[in-house]
């Protein structure tokens, strides 16, 4: 009975936050417009040539990984940082929703927006000729969820410890840096040699590699998935430990 009520409240909070994210113009640019521009751009330029697959087949999984970072890390990080500043987190935590329910609602919102991104961006990629391996589609869903967990935990960690202006700056800057040099869109082999051994240990590189392996070959890149799981666990623990509600 009370579990059903909690689930209803969490779902309601998730819907509310989803609406707030999708109504915010800057968030939409970050979550849909920039990934779509990236996708189209990569199919029209030679950055991904010579990798043994078509441009769109290499680009699509990387761009979906980028979407995960957009919504979980930058999007939810900024939204939570400002909610914290305005006392929204404190107020909602005093309603029956509670702190746990509020965080769960944020995770629901991330997953719902991610689903929208996958449908829109994935749909455009299919139209541009993306042909993922059939088993890769099944592998891709839990990998995207794991990536969302890692990036959302990192976003909440920053939002819960830094001022919202700092959160805004850091999460945007990190999004650009990881987007370009983090092995998320461009495979490690296409990055400067100094970065190549490092990016596999970043959540961006791990998610990018794991999704490309799933989509291109239909295989599970276990080391990459393990790196991602460790990031999710460490960031989740750190956020739980250091997140300040006010």
């Amino acid at each position: 009975m009370s579990a059903a009520r909690l689930a209803r409240r969490v779902w309601q909070q998730g819907r509310y936050e989803t609406g707030a994210m999708l109504r915010n113009g800057e968030q939409l640019i970050l979550m849909l417009v920039l990934p779509l521009l990236g996708l189209v751009g990569l199919t029209m330029t030679p950055f991904l040539d010579g990798l043994g697959a078509s441009r769109i087949d290499v680009a699509a999984p990387g761009i979906l990984a980028l979407c995960t970072m957009s919504v979980g890390f930058t999007g939810q990080g900024i939204a939570t940082g400002f909610d914290r500043r305005y006392g929204v987190l404190r107020f909602l935590s005093t309603t029956p929703l509670g702190r746990g329910g509020l965080i769960a609602g944020k995770v629901v919102a991330v997953l719902v927006v991610l689903a929208v991104q996958v449908v829109v961006v994935g749909g455009v990629a299919l139209a541009l000729g993306w042909r993922p391996a059939p088993s890769g589609v099944l592998l891709g869903i839990p990998l995207l969820a794991l990536g969302a967990a890692a990036f959302t935990a990192l976003g909440l960690l920053i939002a819960g410890t830094a001022r919202p202006e700092a959160t805004l700056a850091v999460t945007n800057l990190v999004w650009i840096l990881l987007g370009v040099f983090g092995g998320i869109v461009l495979p490690a082999t296409r990055l400067p040699a100094a970065l190549e051994p490092v990016v596999g240990f970043l959540p961006s590189g791990a998610l990018g590699e794991a999704l490309r392996a799933a989509s291109l070959e239909g295989t599970l890149n276990l080391p990459a998935a393990a790196v991602l799981a460790i990031w999710a666990a460490v960031a989740g623990t750190a956020a739980t430990r250091w997140f300040r509600w006010s």
């Binding site: 707030a20 109504r23 305005y86 006392g87 107020f91 005093t94």
Partner: peptide, 13 residues
């Protein structure tokens, strides 16, 4: 229990 916080706690948007 109903709570009205000093700074409101309302999302500006």
């Amino acid at each position: 229990v109903g709570i009205m916080l000093q700074e409101g706690g309302l999302p500006p948007a």
